[in-house]
């Protein structure tokens, strides 16, 4: 991002944050680390370029599993058109293990209906009815034809299994699990903030959401 010359030119003219350098080079040096370091130097010397934003401004030494919310891990939604669909309440307190049966659902791929302007030639499904029944049946079929695809008991999901799946093992259907986006750093407990946890002082007098059928 910066020319080497400009860095060298200023190398002798200011005091470098020595502690930072030691920290950075102690372990492995990633490109982001270098960028961060250089940026720190540029700023201390007052030659940082305007306008541009640097990751260094937000970077932190985050280690360990990432805890993100934003998936099927929260409860108390008003689900379905009549709100009569049972809701499993995820607990806010305690062990941080989601109390959600979707863990046992597995993750079949949903159908890919053609949006307005697309046809089967684009690789989607024509004339799909927009109904829960269709999606349910579609995903069930997928389950039948590709049992491995349905990641049952994802709690047991582990690197070996992922490796196995990605390496393919026996030849599988085209729709098997080659999702490159599942590679790289895995962020545990990433969940969607879909709904609100229940608060005891909420102005509800009765529970409006059932937790069992």
């Amino acid at each position: 991002m910066w020319s080497e010359d400009s860095i060298l030119a200023h190398h002798n003219s200011g005091s470098l944050p020595v502690a930072d350098i030691r920290d950075v080079f102690r372990d492995q040096v990633s490109e982001a680390d270098i960028q961060r370091l250089l940026h720190g130097v540029m700023e201390q010397l007052g030659i940082a370029r305007p306008r541009v934003e640097y990751p260094a401004h937000q970077a932190t030494n985050i280690v360990g599993p990432q805890n993100i919310q934003g998936g099927a891990h929260e409860g108390l939604q008003h689900l379905g058109p009549y709100g009569n669909i049972p809701n499993i309440v995820a607990e806010l307190t305690g062990d941080n293990i989601p109390k959600d049966f979707s863990q046992d659902h597995g993750y079949p791929d949903p159908p890919n209906p053609c949006p307005v302007g697309k046809t089967a030639a684009d690789g989607c499904l024509d004339n799909v009815p927009d109904t829960a029944e269709f999606s349910r049946e579609f995903q069930k079929q997928q389950h039948l034809f590709d049992p491995e695809h349905d990641y049952a008991a994802l709690a047991k999901w582990n690197k070996e299994l992922l490796y196995h799946k990605l390496k393919g093992g026996p030849k599988r259907s085209k729709r098997s699990v080659k999702n490159p986006y599942l590679m790289g750093q895995r962020l545990d407990n990433v969940v969607a903030k879909k709904s609100v946890p229940h608060y005891p002082d909420e102005e509800y007098t009765t529970t409006t959401l059932k937790t069992s059928t």
């Binding site: 990432q66 993100i68 934003g70 998936g71 099927a72 993750y107 990641y151 994802l154 999901w157 999702n179 490159p180 986006y181 599942l182 590679m183 790289g184 750093q185 895995r186 962020l187 545990d188 990433v190």
Partner: peptide, 8 residues
């Protein structure tokens, strides 16, 4: 909506 979130 996948088994886990990744940085990618």
């Amino acid at each position: 909506d996948q088994p886990f979130m990744t940085d990618i």
